[in-house]
Design a binder for these strands. Structure first.
Lengths: 337, 337
DNA sequence: GTGAAAGCGCTAACAC
DNA sequence: GTGTTAGCGCTTTCAC
């Protein structure tokens, strides 16, 4: 018996014919409308099963003007995206929430050279909304995405527009907390390895650092910025050490950079946790992978991811959504400071 | 002057009206047909620019029956995907090649609980083809994807079908090489931490191990399998040590698992590289991140990714494509063995 | 070189 | 509860 369609995928038309009903009824069944008689429902279901029917997504979204897909945009180079456990948590949180919805999530790595293509994709009606996992001030293409579909940013966008949505952690407070922690423990020769100056997260953590220092009347020994990578942390550390006075405490704006700093310190015979207090930021897997374990500022990345997804889902469902969500940070005390 | 469309995105109709030509001509320009007069071309280009026109992807793929999109399917849990640098290389290689094409690539994390959704997506005509980054024998949903669109597998599929395409590294030879290396250096009490028995890569590396052992007439001290994660490597190491005779050499089927093994060895006071020779597999970033640096079997993951993408592109373009590509492996000698 | 017309597979009024 | 009818925005013959 020839059950499968002649060629290509089965269409709604074929299902309707086989079930002895109209296209509309099939559509109703597929879309879960209740206004279908039990007998028709049964017939359609069987036909769908026999033909292995899956609705054509293009046709569906053309007619309904929605795609049931959302994009997770990563404006980073591939190696940074994979190298930093921060992204793993964010993605896991987002995936968890989207997974429970009936949206499909597709990840788009929109590194510099791929951003034009990504922009075209996002503007072509391929998705109903987008989540942007990290944000550089140079990522102006994102504004042009936001013109077309709702966007939720991870972290405060560089320029906040009144209708923006974002979920951030309290980076200023986190930076302040970390720095105050060092000061409270009697350190006065304090340096920092900050994040990149083109990312709000980097800017804010540094702002918190300066706030705490000013408050205590302490002047920084050195301020060098890294790019949130391990090697960037290492070279910033080198610059800090060659800057002049050797610090007795160090605030590093990400755990990964702290790992890079560790290496350079060791090379110079300076033992982290003993000769210099080091505090990181993230509380990602690297903070316990290094030795001595890193005292750090915990940011709830998994939660942040979950929130981002929920906000987008709210927007898409027409529910009232929160424009700005700021998640708290806290110090996790380990061995390095 | 009102240049922007009234509401929503501009359509081909609006562009045509503004340029004073028909829809067909606009379509020709958009699709790069040469049969358009210079004046029409110019007019259309300007209209597109002014209206910020981007063709609707759904409409386009409905009419043309192709999507110009490919899926990168990752049948793994999120944390394993992000935790293993192997995937970073694979994705980078694929992204590089796809990036130069006019296809868009969307990554789909199809963990167990999300596989039904991913399957629906892939069967709904959303993509022209798929690349599967890793493969478990339990991933039967992939067969149903291959029914609908061309699929290229990373690694030999569990059950090879005559029309399958895949790009693999020579895992059997790699396992053999690693084991022979240990034997040549005089080790005789050799154990292995193998990959998961439900993954061809794991099976093949173990096969190579046994081949080399048999050839040399040496019996393994212990064979324990891990799941290609760091913690899996650690617990396998624990089992190896409690199995009986303490090994003087160890072949671990992935660098990440070797890192886990290092930790357990150290806890027991056994120093890798001194008290026990350890050889890994991958030559990923972790092999140099650990101390002592790991001697390992290099597999060209970036190249593998590039090949996978090229093969899919060949298939989609109707060019002859290679069904099976096997890439060579080689020993990278460092400090651990 | 250009336009008219048909149709891709579906949803969504609207009648019945 | 169910079918009929119009499109959704585009590509693609086929005439001219």
């Amino acid at each position: 018996m020839d059950l499968a369609p002649a060629r290509g995928a089965a269409t709604i038309e074929e299902v309707a014919a086989r079930a002895g009903v109209s296209r509309s009824t099939v559509s109703r069944v597929v879309n879960g409308s209740t206004a279908v008689s039990p007998s028709a429902l049964e017939a359609v279901r069987r036909a769908i099963d026999e033909l292995q029917y899956v609705p054509n997504r293009a046709a569906r979204s053309l007619a309904s003007r929605q795609t049931r897909a959302i994009a997770l945009v990563i404006p980073e180079q591939t190696d940074r995206f994979f190298g930093d456990p921060f992204f793993a948590s964010i993605v896991a949180g987002i995936g968890e929430v989207i997974g429970e919805s009936d949206y499909i999530m597709n990840m788009l790595i929109a590194s510099d050279d791929a951003s034009a293509k990504a922009l075209g994709y996002l503007r072509s009606g391929s998705v109903d909304g987008a989540i942007v996992a990290s944000h550089h001030t140079s990522d102006t293409f994102l504004d042009r995405v936001a013109d077309v579909v709702p966007v939720v940013y991870g972290g405060r966008p560089a320029r906040i527009r009144s209708d923006d949505y974002y979920v951030d952690v309290d980076n200023v407070e986190g930076g302040r907390l970390a720095t105050a922690y060092l000061i409270e423990r009697g350190h006065r020769r304090i340096a920092t390895i900050s994040g990149p100056p083109d990312m709000p997260a980097g800017i804010d953590r540094l702002k918190g650092f300066h706030a705490a220092m000013t408050e205590a009347g302490v002047t920084p020994v050195a301020v060098e910025n890294g790019d949130f990578t391990e090697s960037g942390g290492a070279s910033a550390m080198t610059r800090v050490l060659s800057a002049g006075e050797r610090p007795d405490a160090l605030f590093v704006a990400s755990d990964l950079m702290a790992r890079g700093a560790y290496e350079v310190l060791r090379e110079k015979g300076i033992e982290p946790g003993r000769d210099i207090a080091v505090i990181g930021f993230d509380d990602s897997a690297v903070s316990t992978a290094v030795s001595p374990a890193l005292t750090t500022v915990r940011q709830p990345s998994l939660t942040q991811g979950r929130h981002m997804a929920s906000v987008l889902l709210d927007i898409l469902a027409g529910r009232p959504a929160v424009h700005a969500t700021i998640l708290p940070t806290e110090i996790i005390e380990r061995a390095s400071a």
